[in-house]
C-alpha cells in the first residue's frame, strides 16, 4: 500500500513540467526515505535525479519499496487537471498496475480521482559517486534561465568559464558571437539575488544549450540554481526544493574533436 499526501500539489505539477520534456518514461521509486526518480534522456547525454523526502509530505505511507513506471507526459497531463493550491494524494495498492491521483481543492468541497496505468520500464540506474567539484556557482535561477534562452538564439553550445571574479557564458553562431559575464556579488541583504562562486580551480567547459534550456524548466521550483563543474565530470545543475529535496540534472560536456 502506497499513500502519499502532499499539501502543495502545485509543487508536484512543477516537478513534472521540469522533467517531461527531457524524459519520456521513467520509474518512480518509493521507499521510506522518499519519492525519487533517476532517468536519462533518450540519447543518454543528460540525466535527471529527483528526490522528494518523506518528511515533506503531510502523510507518507510506503509499506515496501516499490518502483512504478510512468509516462511523464501522461502524468503531467493528469496533474495539470489539479489546481495549484490543491492537495494531491498518490495512491497505489500492492501489485496494482495503476496509480490514483486524488486532488482536493483548498475548501475540500471538490474531490477528483484520476487513475493512470503504470508501465513496465526497463531502465538503467547509474551510480553517481559524491564528487568534489572544481567550481561551484550559485546564482538566481531566473537569471540562468534567461542567459540560456538568450544565448540559444545565437548558438547551439555555450562555453561556461568560472574564475574567482565571476562566471562567463559564451556562444558563437552564424550571425556572430555573444558573451555574458555575471560578476560575483557581495550583497548580504538579498541573498536570493546573489551570484556566489566557490572555486578550487578555474573551469571552462562546453555544453549543448538545448539541454540547458530543458533543465531550466525547473526554474519555478527554486529561486537559486547551483551549477557544479569539474573538467573531468558531467556538470550538475541543482534546484533545491524547499523542505522536500531537489531536482538535479547531470549533463556530459562536449569535447574538441
Amino acid at each position: 500500500m502506497l499513500e502519499l499526501r502532499l499539501l502543495q500539489g502545485g509543487l508536484l505539477k512543477k516537478v513534472l513540467e521540469a522533467m517531461k520534456d527531457l524524459v519520456n518514461d521513467a520509474n518512480f521509486d518509493c521507499s521510506p526515505t522518499g519519492f525519487s526518480l533517476q532517468a536519462m534522456d533518450s540519447s543518454h547525454v543528460a540525466l535527471v535525479s529527483l528526490l522528494l523526502r518523506s518528511e515533506g509530505f503531510e502523510h507518507y505511507r510506503c509499506d515496501r519499496n516499490v518502483s512504478m513506471g510512468m509516462n511523464l507526459n501522461n502524468m503531467a497531463k493528469m496533474l495539470r487537471c489539479a489546481g495549484n493550491d490543491d492537495i494531491v494524494t498518490l495512491k497505489a495498492d500492492d501489485g496494482s498496475d495503476c496509480i490514483t491521483f486524488m486532488f482536493e481543492n483548498p475548501s475540500q468541497d471538490k474531490i477528483a480521482d484520476f487513475e493512470m496505468k503504470l508501465m513496465d520500464i526497463d531502465s538503467e540506474h547509474l551510480g553517481i559517486p559524491d564528487a568534489e567539484y572544481q567550481s561551484i556557482v550559485r546564482m538566481p535561477a531566473a537569471e540562468f534561465a534567461r542567459i540560456c534562452r538568450d544565448l540559444s538564439t545565437i548558438g547551439d553550445t555555450v562555453l561556461i568559464s568560472v574564475s574567482k571574479e565571476g562566471v562567463q557564458f559564451s556562444t558563437r553562431g552564424d550571425m556572430g558571437t555573444a558573451n555574458i559575464v555575471c560578476r560575483r556579488t557581495t550583497t548580504v541583504d538579498k541573498p536570493e539575488e546573489d551570484v556566489i562562486i566557490e572555486m578550487e580551480e578555474p573551469v571552462s567547459l562546453t555544453f549543448a544549450l538545448r539541454y540547458l534550456n530543458s533543465f531550466t524548466k525547473a526554474t519555478p521550483l527554486a529561486t537559486q540554481v547551483t551549477i557544479s563543474m569539474s573538467s573531468d565530470l558531467p556538470m550538475v545543475i541543482e534546484y533545491r526544493i524547499e523542505g522536500m529535496g531537489y531536482i538535479r540534472y547531470y549533463l556530459a560536456p562536449k569535447i574538441d574533436e
Binding site: V45, A46, D256
Partner: peptide
C-alpha cells in the same frame, strides 16, 4: 562543434 560525450561514459550502472 565538438563531440558530445554520453553520461554513461562517466557513471557506472548499478
Amino acid at each position: 562543434k565538438g563531440a558530445q560525450l554520453s553520461i554513461t561514459e562517466f557513471y557506472r550502472a548499478t
